[in-house]
Design a protein around this nucleic acid. Structure first.
Length: 173
DNA sequence: TTAAGGATCTCCT
DNA sequence: GGAGATCCTTAAA
């Protein structure tokens, strides 16, 4: 079973300077080690005890830069809806938008810690494809990142969250 | 608005 | 090594 979709929402995190980043101040821990890898490596981690978040490193080795993938517009022909939420499918919005948030996105793609440090340029189970879609700049919205109020007024306000305007799969318009 | 839930980090001993 | 706070969310009410 292949799960696929178009990335419609991302956030940028730039290592040492960015107080919202796990690598703020040059912090290097076992948890965020993947953030320090060369671009193309998966940095996945657990938040709130139950949800994973998918990041992909973008910097050079030793530069903790990464992009958080926040939302995906599913490729409808490639997934089986019944498989998503066996418990209460008819009630859940997950049916219509199974990947409109970082936690749901990982559930949709069946990602977990086993993907930690995966190289998306080499991996056979997780990779990116360029379908030649070029989103017009006018349709790209930049805004403040989500859930990082703890980072202080400055870093919480930086417009480093990018999403596609009006796309229903975006977690927040 | 709130609880769920567990790993991780930060101090402290 | 151990306790306590915190956390880039979600779904239900």
């Amino acid at each position: 079973m292949v799960r696929a979709g178009e990335i419609v929402e991302t956030e940028a995190y730039i290592g040492p300077e960015d107080r919202a980043s796990h690598a703020y101040g040059g912090k290097h821990t076992p948890r965020n080690a993947a953030e320090w890898m060369v671009g193309g490596h998966v940095y996945i981690y657990l938040v709130y005890g139950m949800y994973f978040q998918l990041n992909i490193s973008t910097g050079k080795e030793g530069n903790p830069e990464c992009v958080l993938i926040r939302a995906l517009e599913p490729a409808h022909d490639k997934f089986d809806k019944a498989e998503l939420l066996p418990a209460a499918p008819h009630k859940s919005s997950a049916l219509n938008q199974p990947a409109n948030g970082p936690g749901k996105l990982c559930r949709y793609l069946k990602l977990d810690k086993s993907f930690y440090g995966e190289d998306v340029t080499e991996s056979k189970r997780l990779w990116l494809e360029d379908h030649g879609v070029r989103v017009p700049h006018a349709k790209i919205v930049a805004g403040p990142r989500v859930g990082i109020d703890y980072a202080g007024v400055h870093w919480a306000a930086v417009p480093w969250r990018f999403s596609i305007k009006g796309n229903p799969a975006v977690s927040r318009q």
